[in-house]
Design a protein around this nucleic acid. Structure first.
Lengths: 214, 214
DNA sequence: TCCTAAGTGGACGGGATCGTCCGTTTAAAT
DNA sequence: ATTTAAACGGACGATCCCGTCCACTTAGGA
């Protein structure tokens, strides 16, 4: 890759994060290009689809999430690991605007090359949950899919209230408290049959409702 | 209003609910018109803006919400009233697809004629919360804005997983449990400064992130 | 039956975004 | 310095959606 090409690629990613944060994940591609000081053609050559751009722009945050999971498993205190994982991911969603949508959009990688990475993620999550339950900290009726449910609802909240960190922190605190074993007063309804790979996604990568436009 | 006009108005509302459920709240107006078997002009004459159409299409659900609040206040058991209100609104969001977005979009009626209705709603909510706290059922550090936070996050969840009633029910159960007084193990972070009228909304009525398109 | 005003529908101009094509520029190897 | 292939940028045609305008139709009273 030529030097100028590499430079432009970097500029595009910076611009994309800024534009996505300001105008949402499906801002016009031309806006990103202009902000990067680059022609549209250059943008399209580097990232053929909007989805590719979104993924690349938030790859760093994705890695942070993966690292958080590793760290959580490494924590000697299973509950603390669980708690920190949840808090870390939610903090990322809260701070990097545009990331929540990207986060949701990145899930259904089903066909993609990351199948094995995903396998591992799912297995790690399961391990984390089982361990915290065995330690008596996480309620026994907690289901791994509940973590996804919690993360998705938090995504929705920060999407609706992008500037309200207090609201996000409150939700996180409420949810964590209700995940504790002591909170298991009454039985829960049956868990979602959701597998991580089943999260349906908007074709355009947005989180909007049923984006399938006739 | 002429008979045929009234008939067409009804058809449009039915079509709008169907189309919004299937393609999201900002499906093309022409799609709604086609589905209703009328011309676009008729649609625009009856509902000059998309927002007006959305409001009218989901007016029934809105009234159900209002009634749920009244019922909640009338319930002799303050906690049961609170619980039922939350469950009822969430059930509505879960069952009528397209309603969550409409629900969020309807909030910032600030300038509108419904200012007084809104005043009353806010007051009623506050009363409901205080009453449930006085009864010792709702945790003392619950803030009225927490109910909005909970509803918005639930909106986000059903938007992301439109077909997963189980996930929605789980979230509702978790949240309700963490709202109980017995769950107040540890202090919560400070509440959101959110007033109901401050909920920022997408110009297009969608729930997508920062809709302000340059 | 006739009349008229309300109602209707489709065509149309305007505006926005997409993604490609192609002539020009430039990095970097020789 | 020369060369060449990679990289570039802007213009362009295609597509979509909005919202209005206008000529035609029809309900319902006289």
């Amino acid at each position: 890759m030529r030097a100028d090409a590499r430079r432009n690629r970097g500029r595009i990613l910076v611009a994309a994060r800024a534009v996505f944060a300001e105008h949402g994940i499906d801002a016009p591609m031309a806006t990103v290009a202009r902000r990067a000081g680059v022609g549209v053609a250059t943008l399209y050559r580097r990232f053929p689809t909007r989805d590719a751009l979104v993924r690349a722009a938030f790859a760093h945050q994705m890695e942070t999430c993966a690292r958080a999971l590793t760290d959580a498993l490494a924590d000697p205190d299973p509950w603390r690991g669980f708690q920190r994982l949840f808090e870390t991911v939610c903090e990322l969603q809260r701070e990097e605007r545009g990331f929540p949508a990207a986060f949701v959009a990145a899930f259904p990688d089903s066909t993609a090359e990351h199948a094995q990475a995903r396998e591992r993620t799912e297995r790690d999550l399961m391990t984390l949950v089982r361990r915290a339950q065995a330690a008596g900290a996480l309620r026994a009726d907690f289901h791994p899919s509940d973590l996804v449910v919690a993360l998705l609802s938090h995504c929705g909240l920060v999407t609706a209230l992008p500037h309200d960190g207090a609201a996000s922190r409150r939700l996180v605190a409420y949810l964590l408290q209700s995940f504790r074993a002591e909170a298991a007063h009454r039985p829960l309804p049956p868990p979602s049959a959701l597998s991580l790979r089943d999260v349906p996604i908007a074709a355009d990568g947005s989180q909007r409702q049923r984006p399938s436009r006739a």
